[in-house]
């Protein structure tokens, strides 16, 4: 298939980008600004996702992608702008309340509950929608889905990076969300791991989930998404078709500048 001498990051990923059915957006953010002291981490960014759509978010290190996620999921209160979910203003809603509405996020640096087993980690999330042994059954079914069932009893602290990523995904899937925010779930995985993750994300989108994903690896985004937003220094650089965005001069400059460090 592919030449073995290729760099892992250049391994082509099979599959077509997901084209979402048209319809009203489930999540909409208008003119989001986040300031930390004098630093504008996110400046005037707007976005919208529809059910079944994968929205890609790219940009060099420190561009403000994670901060934007934090603003959208309630971990940071934006200094300006508005977030609506199904038309309802949720700008100042707590993260736990957003989770109950159907918004779920992973963390860029995975944060399993280390004292708990893999199954118990997912069980904590499964309790959002289920009670008692139903929650346990649900948690185990999710583990089977992400391929972690054989690790169910292992302490989460013992997992390697790839499995920690999958656990992170299992926890958000156990919430049965409608909108999913993935913060660099793929970078750092080996090629087979990347392919599995990409396939899983594609299935999730086909099942009607709205997905916003941050990813550094351009060809991963291209294989999944038909709409990307590129940020640098908190500002919007380019938006639209991933191939056009990747070819945009400002985007190339931002990434080349990033490569120099």
């Amino acid at each position: 298939m592919t030449a073995p001498t290729q760099f892992p990051e250049l391994t082509p990923l099979p599959g077509q980008p997901v084209h979402a059915p048209s319809g009203p957006p489930i999540l909409k953010a208008e003119n989001i600004t986040v300031r930390f002291g004098g630093v504008v981490a996110v400046g005037d960014i707007s976005l919208a996702v529809r059910p079944g759509e994968i929205l890609g978010l790219i940009g060099p290190n420190g561009a403000g992608k994670t901060t934007l996620f934090n603003a959208l999921t309630g971990f940071v209160t934006p200094s300006g702008g508005r977030v609506t979910y199904n038309g309802r203003d949720i700008t100042n809603m707590q993260p736990q309340a957003r989770a109950k509405l159907g918004m779920a996020r992973t963390f860029q640096v995975e944060r399993p509950f280390e004292d708990l087993s893999v199954l118990e980690n997912v069980l904590v999330a499964a309790f959002l929608k289920y009670r008692g042994t139903k929650a346990e059954d649900h948690a185990y079914a999710v583990l089977e889905r992400v391929g972690l069932a054989d690790r169910a009893t292992q302490p989460a602290a013992q997992l390697n990076l790839a499995r920690r990523r999958r656990l992170e995904l299992a926890k958000v899937l156990a919430l049965e969300p409608k909108v999913l925010f993935l913060d660099e779930s793929i970078a750092g995985l080996n090629p087979p791991g990347q392919q599995e993750m990409v396939a899983l994300i594609r299935t999730l989108a086909h099942s009607g989930l709205a997905i916003v994903m941050v990813e550094h690896i351009m060809h991963v985004i291209m294989s999944l998404s038909d709409h990307v937003i590129c940020m640098a220094f908190g500002e919007l650089l380019a938006e639209g078709d991933p191939h056009e965005v990747a070819a945009h001069p400002d985007v190339i400059r931002a990434y080349l500048g990033d490569d120099n460090d």
């Binding site: 971990f75 736990q96 959002l128």
Partner: peptide
């Protein structure tokens, strides 16, 4: 119980717990 797991999640990582719908 559900409460027991929520408490352990809070003990280990409050933000991680919040992301999973726990107050």
């Amino acid at each position: 119980s559900r409460m027991g797991y929520a408490l352990q999640a809070v003990r280990e990582d409050e933000d991680g717990a919040r992301a999973l719908g726990i107050d």
